[in-house]
């Protein structure tokens, strides 16, 4: 699903956040991306979600070269990705239901379909009863779950999460991770960037580790094209 061929990302200031990264996350797999702060985890996820472009090398998502994708096509590719942010990025001017329904509205689903799928997604994260609540009235863990519901409501084939449990206590963190495992169970490809080494070990999923922009460990054995 995700392939990096010698990807280097240098930010405008000249800082090299990724150096010659090659990796392959197969379709239907779930993996964790770890590494110290500043190792380049977010940068890698941003390249996959078309927020940043590689300076060198090729980043490929399902046979599509992300580095050369015309701007006009970017939204259509993003619709296949569910993105979960550390700070969940909910819109506080509208209730939970409207937040979660956003991707369906963009995709052009009819009204009844939107209602059905939105409730299904909220049910999956255990927040069906909060559909009318405003996000500001929810706890941190609940807000994060709304963010997850929004990311999965349109059944994307790839789920990306950047430190989704960064602000949560261990119990809540485990709950959130369990939701990711459930999606993986039903065939969604999942890549989660996280600091939480203890929890990652406990879950027993493949790990890719970055250090100063380089891959130093890859349970998938990297990309076998040299």
């Amino acid at each position: 699903m995700i392939q990096f061929h010698h990807v280097t990302k240098r930010y405008p200031g000249g800082f090299e956040a990724l150096s010659n990264v090659s990796l392959h996350l197969p379709k239907g797999e779930m993996a964790f991306l770890t590494g110290h702060s500043g190792a380049g985890k977010s940068t890698l996820l941003k390249i996959v979600s078309l927020i940043e472009k590689p300076t060198r090398g090729q980043a490929i998502l399902n046979r599509i070269n992300l580095g050369t994708l015309p701007r006009k096509r970017v939204p259509y590719i993003r619709r296949h990705i569910g993105f979960i942010f550390q700070d969940h990025q909910l819109l506080f001017d509208r209730p939970v239901f409207d937040n979660v329904a956003m991707p369906l509205i963009i995709l052009g689903y009819p009204r009844n379909e939107i209602a059905r799928r939105t409730r299904a997604a909220l049910d999956k994260v255990g927040l069906l009863s909060k559909e009318k609540a405003m996000p500001i009235t929810l706890s941190g863990g609940e807000q994060q779950r709304v963010g997850i519901a929004r990311a999965v409501v349109h059944k994307p084939m790839l789920l990306l999460a950047d430190e989704p449990t960064g602000n949560l206590d261990p119990v809540l963190s485990r709950e959130i991770m369990q939701i990711f495992l459930d999606f993986h169970q039903v065939g969604v490809t999942v890549l989660v960037a996280s600091h939480d080494l203890g929890l990652i070990e406990e879950l027993g999923k493949p790990v890719i580790t970055l250090n100063q922009g380089k891959v130093i460990h890859d349970d998938f054995g990297g990309l076998d094209d040299g």
Partner: peptide
């Protein structure tokens, strides 16, 4: 923020 989020979830 709303514009950023809607762009991220694939709005044209």
């Amino acid at each position: 923020q709303e514009i950023v989020v809607t762009k991220l979830i694939g709005a044209t």
